[in-house]
C-alpha cells in the first residue's frame, strides 16, 4: 500500500473519531508531534512538583500540609502516566529524560516562576491548575488512544487541585489585612503567566492548524484563553480581589470579557531560559536524577541476584 493510501486511511479514522493506537500506521510527523507534546506535558508535571514542594515543610496547618503532599504526589503520578503513554510511540524513558536534562525538551514556562509566599500555593491551584484543566479536558478526546486515556485519569484526579487552591485563597481573603494583601499579591504575580500558559496567539501558532486536523487539539489557544479569562473574572469576585488588568471589562456584544495585551516578550524570554528560576529548576531535576542513580542500580542488581538464585535452585 502506498504512503498516500495509508495517510488517507489514517485521516479517515481521525475524521470518524476512531482512536489511533500504538500499532496502527501513523505519519512520522504525527508521531513526532505527539512525542514532543506528550513528553513536554510529562516534564511539566515533574518539574511542576518543585515550586510547590518548596512550601510543604512550611504549610500553615497539618490539613494544608497533607493536602499539598497529596497534590505533589498526584503530579508525580501524572508525569508517570504521560511518560508511559509517550513510550508507546517508541521513544524510551532514558531518551525522554535526557532531552529534559539537556534542555532540548521544554516544560511549561509557568514553573520557572518562584513561589514567594504561602498564598502562591492558593494562586497556583486556582489559576495555574485552572488553566491546565482548561487545556486538559479537551485532551481527553485526543486522537491518540494512550494519550487520551492518560488524560482521563489525570483530569479525574486533578479536580481537587483547583478546589484546594481556591480554598486557600478564600481563607486568606477572609483573614487579616496582611493576609488579604498576600492573597492579592499572589494573584497579581500569577495572573499573566497563567494567561500565557495557553501559548502564542492563534496567528502566531503555526503548528496549531495541523494539530487540529489531527484532532490532537480540539480548541485553539485563543479560544481556551478566552474561556479561562471569562471564568476567572467571575470567580475572583467571590474572593473580593481583582485581576491585575485595567483593560479587563465585560463586552456585552461579544458576551465575553475583553482583556489587555499580553507581554509576549516576557513569554519568549522565559521559554528561552531567562526566567527567574529556569536554571534552578533544571539543576534540581538533574541532581535528583543523578543522586538517585545508585538506587536504580541497586534495585537492578538485587533483581538479577534473585533471578540467578532461582535458576540455581531449579537446576539443583
Amino acid at each position: 500500500m502506498s504512503v498516500q493510501d495509508l495517510e488517507k486511511i489514517f485521516q479517515d479514522k481521525i475524521d470518524a473519531d476512531i482512536r489511533i493506537e500504538p500499532k496502527d500506521w501513523m505519519p512520522d510527523a504525527y508521531r513526532k508531534t505527539l512525542v514532543r507534546q506528550m513528553s513536554q506535558h510529562a516534564h511539566s508535571e515533574i518539574v511542576g512538583m518543585l515550586p510547590e514542594a518548596n512550601w510543604i515543610t512550611r504549610a500553615p496547618t497539618l490539613r494544608r500540609k497533607a493536602t499539598l503532599i497529596a497534590k505533589v504526589q498526584d503530579e508525580a503520578g501524572h508525569g508517570l502516566y504521560l511518560y508511559s503513554a509517550t513510550e508507546t510511540l517508541g521513544t524510551g524513558r532514558d531518551e525522554l529524560l535526557e532531552q529534559l536534562h539537556t534542555g532540548k525538551a521544554k516544560y511549561s514556562s509557568i514553573f520557572n516562576y518562584p513561589t514567594l509566599t504561602w498564598a502562591d500555593m492558593g494562586a497556583i491551584g486556582w489559576l495555574v491548575d485552572g488553566a491546565a484543566i482548561m487545556n486538559q479536558v479537551p485532551l481527553c478526546r485526543a486522537s491518540y488512544g494512550p494519550y487520551a486515556r492518560a488524560m482521563v485519569r489525570i483530569c479525574k484526579e486533578e479536580s481537587f487541585h483547583q478546589r484546594q487552591g481556591f480554598e486557600i485563597l478564600l481563607t486568606l481573603s477572609r483573614g487579616s489585612e496582611a493576609q488579604r494583601r498576600m492573597c492579592q499579591d499572589a494573584i497579581n504575580r500569577w495572573w499573566w503567566p497563567s494567561v500565557m500558559m495557553f501559548g502564542p496567539n492563534d496567528d502566531a501558532s503555526p503548528n496549531s492548524a495541523q494539530s487540529m486536523q489531527w484532532k490532537i487539539k480540539r480548541f485553539s489557544n485563543d479560544e481556551l484563553r478566552q474561556k479561562f479569562v471569562d471564568v476567572s473574572a467571575e470567580q475572583v469576585k467571590i474572593l473580593g480581589m481583582t485581576l491585575p488588568d485595567p483593560d479587563l471589562v465585560w463586552n456585552e456584544d461579544k458576551q465575553h470579557y475583553d482583556f489587555g495585551a499580553i507581554d509576549w516578550d516576557e513569554f519568549w524570554n522565559v521559554i528561552k531560559g531567562n526566567g527567574p528560576c529556569n536554571k534552578e529548576r533544571l539543576e534540581a531535576r538533574v541532581k535528583a536524577h543523578e543522586d538517585g542513580a545508585w538506587v536504580r542500580e541497586a534495585a537492578m542488581a538485587y533483581a538479577e541476584k534473585v533471578s540467578r538464585n532461582s535458576v540455581k535452585k531449579e537446576i539443583a
Binding site: 478546589r163 484546594q164 481556591f166 480554598e167
Partner: peptide, 16 residues
Amino acid sequence: YRHPTFYDLPDELKHM
C-alpha cells in the same frame, strides 16, 4: 483530602 468534595467552597463559585 484526595477527593474534591473535601474542600468547602461557596455555592456561587461556578466552573470548578
